[in-house]
C-alpha cells in the first residue's frame, strides 16, 4: 500500500488505537472487553503500521520483538495462575486485594487482571509474529529429504 495519506496518518492513528486497546483490556472484567480483544486491537494497530510503512519500520516502532512479548505475556499469566498455590488454594483461584489510590479511591487489584494483562501481551506477540512471518517466510533449501 503506497498511499501518501495513509503513510502520514498512521503515526497519529496508531497510538490512539493502542490507548483504546488498553481501555478495552481494563474494562474487561465485568463488561465486554478483556485481554484477548484488547490484544487484537493492539495487534491491529501494528498491522496497520505494517501495511502503511512496511515490516521493518513496524519492527522498529515496536522496539521489542514479538517473541519476547509472547514470553512475557505467557509468564505473567502463568504467575497469576500460580499465585493462589502459594496461598494454599488450588490453581487459578482468584485473589483480590484492595489498594488505596489517591484521587481514585479504592482500586481492586487481583490475579484476574494480571492474567488478562498476560493474555493481552501473549495475543499481541503471537499475532504480530505470525504477521511478520507472513512477510518474511522463506525456505531453507528447496529440495526436501525424500
Amino acid at each position: 500500500m503506497n498511499s501518501y495519506l495513509i503513510r502520514m496518518t498512521v503515526p497519529w492513528l496508531c497510538p490512539f488505537l493502542l490507548v483504546m486497546s488498553i481501555w478495552i483490556l481494563l474494562r474487561g472484567h465485568n463488561a465486554p472487553g478483556g485481554g484477548f480483544i484488547g490484544g487484537l486491537v493492539a495487534a491491529a494497530a501494528i498491522a496497520f503500521w505494517c501495511f502503511a510503512r512496511g515490516v521493518e519500520d513496524a519492527k522498529r516502532w515496536m522496539r521489542v520483538s514479538p517473541l519476547h512479548l509472547m514470553i512475557a505475556g505467557v509468564s505473567t499469566a502463568l504467575i497469576s495462575g500460580l499465585m493462589p498455590m502459594f496461598a494454599g488454594k488450588p490453581m487459578l483461584t482468584a485473589l483480590w486485594h484492595k489498594v488505596e489510590v489517591p484521587l481514585l479511591g479504592k482500586l481492586p487489584l487481583g490475579t484476574p487482571i494480571l492474567f488478562d494483562i498476560g493474555v493481552f501481551f501473549a495475543v499481541v506477540g503471537v499475532t504480530t509474529s505470525i504477521l511478520f512471518s507472513l512477510e518474511e517466510f522463506e525456505l531453507w533449501n528447496r529440495s526436501g529429504p525424500s
Binding site: E138, L139, W140, R142, G144, P145, S146
Partner: peptide
C-alpha cells in the same frame, strides 16, 4: 520446522 519443501 525444517522448512524444506517436502515438510511444507
Amino acid at each position: 520446522l525444517g522448512k524444506t519443501n517436502a515438510q511444507l
